[in-house]
């Protein structure tokens, strides 16, 4: 396992920070709607893959692009980042909102994605088992719902929630609102999921309080070659809660 190293790029005028390490086939990771969970879990993949985990514009250490108002703007951003990195084909892993982005990317540029893993992906509309509305749910309520075993997240949060921490979350919420406030449901997503012809793994914690595990079934129905892995006793941040998850994804992608 190698430690991830920070690199900084300017992509179409936007500061883009990524963390990378390892040798082998490229593995790109798309993070979710928050960034407090960090990238260090991805070090588990560095033995077999060249891992690339970037902050999307509007999140974490990357800069803002206030013209980004739909998920497709992020697809375009990654096309340009991949050009800068001279990445042609790669494995793609997306978590939560990043799972939605990964599915969009793969449905439009499937020939570049060798294998796809979606961890508790956002984007399906299941009226019986709806996704928690993270826009209207107060942040202090969302955070404890992220994991079944909150201890795994606790040490990543500051001991005292200060103005700087709140401001960073407000900025990321603003980025999410720019994308999802008016149209949280993308009815076109399932319409084109049949284009995910690559081997695909859908991973879900069976105690997910943000995006209910029942939605895994919808993904299985819409993706031609989807394998589903349900992890017992884990919540939304299943990759943090269960150390066996990252290696299992790595094994699938090999």
């Amino acid at each position: 396992m190698s430690k991830l190293v920070r690199e900084e790029y300017t992509i179409d005028g936007v500061k883009t920070v990524l963390y990378t390490a390892g040798k082998g086939d490229p593995l790109v990771f798309f993070h979710g709607a928050g960034t407090v969970d960090g990238f260090d879990f991805a070090e588990a993949w560095t033995d077999k893959f060249r891992v690339i985990a970037a902050y999307h514009p509007g999140w974490g250490e990357s800069g803002d692009d206030t013209t980004f108002t739909e998920i497709h703007d992020y697809v375009m951003h990654y096309l340009e980042l991949f050009d800068a990195l001279k990445l042609d084909t790669f494995n793609l892993v997306g978590l939560s909102l990043g799972g939605y982005l990964a599915a969009k990317f793969a449905s439009e540029h499937g020939h570049r994605v060798k294998k796809l893993a979606l961890i508790a992906p956002f984007g399906m509309h299941d009226p019986e088992h709806p996704t928690l509305d993270i826009i209207s749910t107060p942040g202090e309520q969302v955070v404890p719902m992220l994991a079944s075993n909150f201890e795994v997240l606790k040490n990543r949060l500051p001991a005292n929630i200060d103005v700087e921490f709140l401001a960073a979350r407000y900025r990321e919420s603003t980025t999410v609102a720019r994308l999802l406030w008016e149209h949280p449901i993308d009815s076109r997503l399932p319409r084109y999921l049949h284009r995910l012809q690559m081997p695909t793994l859908v991973v879900w914690g069976d105690e997910d309080k943000i995006i209910p595990v029942h939605q895994a079934q919808l993904w299985r129905e819409h993706i031609p070659n989807a394998e589903v892995m349900i992890v017992k006793g884990a919540g939304h941040l299943v990759h943090l809660e269960k150390p066996e998850v990252a290696p299992a994804i790595g094994k699938f992608l090999l």
């Binding site: 103005v163 700087e164 401001a167 407000y170 900025r171 919420s173 603003t174 609102a177 720019r178 406030w181």
Partner: peptide
């Protein structure tokens, strides 16, 4: 979210 700038949020908080 987005109703005020991050800078304004800091001042108001």
């Amino acid at each position: 979210p987005g109703y005020i700038s991050v800078e304004q949020l800091k001042i108001r908080s």
